[in-house]
Design a protein around this nucleic acid. Structure first.
Lengths: 335, 335
DNA sequence: CCCCTCTGGTGAATCGTTTCATCAAGAAGT
DNA sequence: ACTTCTTGATGAAACGATTCACCAGAGGGG
């Protein structure tokens, strides 16, 4: 039945321990010269009053930044959850926490999120950008003291100070095309975000290079990277009847969209149409047939991102290992 | 090539516009009496200097709280992503943002997360608690002014001021058992978190009540609610060979674990074993057979949570509608 | 006896905002 | 001409912490 007390402040603690506010602060933080007896007294007073330092005030004074901003593209993609988890684990160890915003593949919102984080006194920003030369290019020079790490995108050399963490796209594309080639495929279709949004520019380049090298007919199609967008795109292409199509998509999440499209057209994945996805989400093994996918340790990705944010130094480009998990969503075309 | 400037403060803006700091603040916030000409001058100065108010300082002064804390149980469950998205959408409209922490089904971490949010000057806390009488019971009276909404758990009448949002468990259980009954099942197995952790106590009660009413043999098993835990539990029970087993689990995510276990034992879901899950995640339609599941609008859940946080009033219990999506993971036992 | 060091402690400045109380000066009312 | 209002503006006090600069006194050495 205690009446709704006001917030208990350091002043209250000091009063109760009969010392100055300064001494109380020192005692609790173990900074200045404080007699052991005093420390004890302050500690007890703090405990009795259930004192908790207001971290807004603390940070205002110290300039310390214990919040990190994360801007992800899509709150519905399980991929990001694991990345967040990796980040969160490390952040937790450091007593930091994450502010999570979603750009929803919208340049406006990406810009708004960046601005917000700028005023928030954040210790660093991790961003999965939705395109090159987006709002980030403007934002960066205005916040020269905030470390930035971009993940899941190829590094944009035009913005010097950002580190990059992502799958090794070169290896990924090579693995995928190799997998198709040895199964007798003569071509492949790489699914990417629409022109202005594509952040993984290097992937396309590598794709064409490998296709040329191995004599495959490489096609790049662009469509909105959500379930509906990919499903529609896949339906159109399969309906066009240009022969067997092998899709390489960005995420298992989108691989599932191809399954949907195939089912609607009465085609069978792994026989009439082939899919190679990225990510290896937990449910992908349970699809029928299982989804062949490029596996990446997502938590480790998050861990790297957080490491780069909290120990800033020279910009770094981390390419994480990728391996192909074959589950049968790619047809054998050579009998 | 501008040298790394110091942070631009309101004082700088005021100086440049040749007014007092107070007047500058008023001009930008449209509060006091300011001559139109002055407003214009201050605005321009702010724009030229690219001034952004430091929100830590602002909030320290105003006591305004534009951050909301979310404590989820498991960063790997896609369920929470949609909830977060629902929250984020509404938060974004209000200019607020989310601080996301994960309890990882660990009471210690749950407590730590709560304490952290307490010092963070957060405007409200949304929590998916991992058990009754957890750290929340201690925390609540210490922070009488912070609204709290619990989601995905049955309301605990012992803590008066928290609102609750979740699926209508009564309807959910009824739908599930009805589905089993009309397919000739004589029993059902409800999978729940271990004793100390179960936060959805009402579900169990309802389960027993319905089973009794319809003459079903109801069993409650408890195991860690992650993929491995459920897979192990399911393997054990199916291996015991006590006849056909029909599992009712908390989440599609865990339903998939039963599929795994069944496959390992060479049993077929929908024939040798039955599963009803909750959530209807996007991939569940693609399993073979499709997962029969209880659908809930997760974004709307998040929206409700955020609404209750930002417009606090009398504690409220929101039960969201649930409907059963039949995809064939329940066997027909009566031929 | 004087000077110096060391310990424990304090008042006040500071971080960047918002906002209260006050004020000057001109307009308006009587 | 004297009061009263209104407008535009200002200095300073918050918010709640950290920390700098200073101080009293005890003890030690010469």
């Amino acid at each position: 039945m205690t009446p709704a007390r006001k917030r208990v402040t350091l002043r209250d603690v000091a009063a109760r321990a009969e010392v100055s506010v300064a001494q109380a602060s020192f005692a609790l933080n173990g900074r200045g010269r404080v007699a052991p007896a005093t420390i004890e007294r302050v500690r007890r007073a703090a405990a009795e009053l259930d004192y908790q330092a207001d971290s807004r005030a603390r940070r205002l004074r110290t300039g310390e930044r214990s919040a990190y901003g994360v801007i992800i593209r899509n709150m519905r993609n399980p991929f990001f959850l694991d990345v967040l988890r990796g980040m969160e684990v490390r952040a937790h160890r450091q007593g930091a926490f994450l502010i999570i915003l979603s750009s929803d593949y919208d340049v406006e919102r990406e810009g708004a999120a960046l601005r917000r984080l700028g005023t928030e006194g954040v210790g660093g920003v991790a961003i999965a950008p939705i395109g090159r030369h987006g709002p980030l290019t403007e934002w960066l020079p205005r916040h020269p003291d905030i470390p930035v790490v971009a993940f899941n995108c190829t590094s944009d050399p035009s913005v010097g100070r950002v580190s990059t963490v992502g799958p090794d796209d070169g290896v990924a594309i090579t693995l995928a095309l190799e997998h198709l080639r040895v199964r007798g495929h003569r071509g492949a279709t790489l699914v990417m975000a629409p022109e202005g949004l594509a952040a993984d520019w290097g992937r396309e380049e590598e794709f064409y290079r490998r296709c040329a090298e191995w004599g495959l007919a490489g096609t790049v199609v662009r469509c909105p990277l959500d379930h509906a967008g990919v499903a529609r795109m896949a339906t159109e292409r399969m309906g066009a009847g240009t022969g067997h199509e092998a899709f390489v998509v960005n995420s298992d999440y989108l691989g599932a969209a191809v399954y949907d499209a195939a089912r609607a057209l009465d085609l069978r994945v792994g026989r009439d149409v082939s899919v190679i996805a990225h990510d290896d989400l937990p449910t992908s093994a349970l699809l029928a047939p299982g989804l062949t996918t490029l596996r990446l340790d997502r938590e480790s990705l998050g861990d790297h991102v957080m490491r780069l944010l909290s120990e800033p130094g020279e910009p770094e480009t981390v390419r994480l290992p990728v391996r192909l998990v074959d589950r049968g969503s790619v047809a054998r075309l050579d009998g």
